[in-house]
């Protein structure tokens, strides 16, 4: 399973970015290989409208199963995630990607509901 965290940087100790659609990076953790990679989403800042669905598509294309973020997606992004069968969980704390993933794996996070 692949878990993506919206982050301000590219490392596992990068801080969680509360925004989903306009996050610059996603740190991705693969539970099978236990490896960390990242998705560069910086070009989203050039997008005026529709950042949410664009980012969602990118996440989908990367084969991600679960997203961990702060604010929760807009209506459009949610629609894409739902269609792509990607689950989203919300964390409001000021912590790192690695810490959020641990929380998720310990079932401490709340699933986003529209």
């Amino acid at each position: 399973m692949k878990i993506a965290v919206s982050t301000v940087g590219t490392k596992k100790d990068s801080k969680l970015e509360p925004r989903f659609g306009r996050a610059n990076y996603f740190v991705v953790y693969d539970t099978e290989t236990k490896e960390y990679t990242f998705i560069d989403n910086q070009e989203i800042q050039e997008t005026a409208h529709g950042a949410g669905p664009q980012t969602s598509q990118k996440i989908f294309d990367a084969g991600v199963n679960v997203i961990l973020t702060g604010n929760g997606p807009g209506k459009n992004a949610f629609q894409v995630l739902e269609a792509g069968n990607i689950k989203m969980f919300i964390c409001k704390e000021d912590i790192t990607a690695e810490e959020v993933i641990t929380k998720y794996l310990n079932n401490e996070l709340k699933a986003f509901e529209n």
Partner: peptide, 10 residues
Amino acid sequence: FNAITMLGKR
């Protein structure tokens, strides 16, 4: 306007 997204062929 980014009003269209493709998920695979959808």
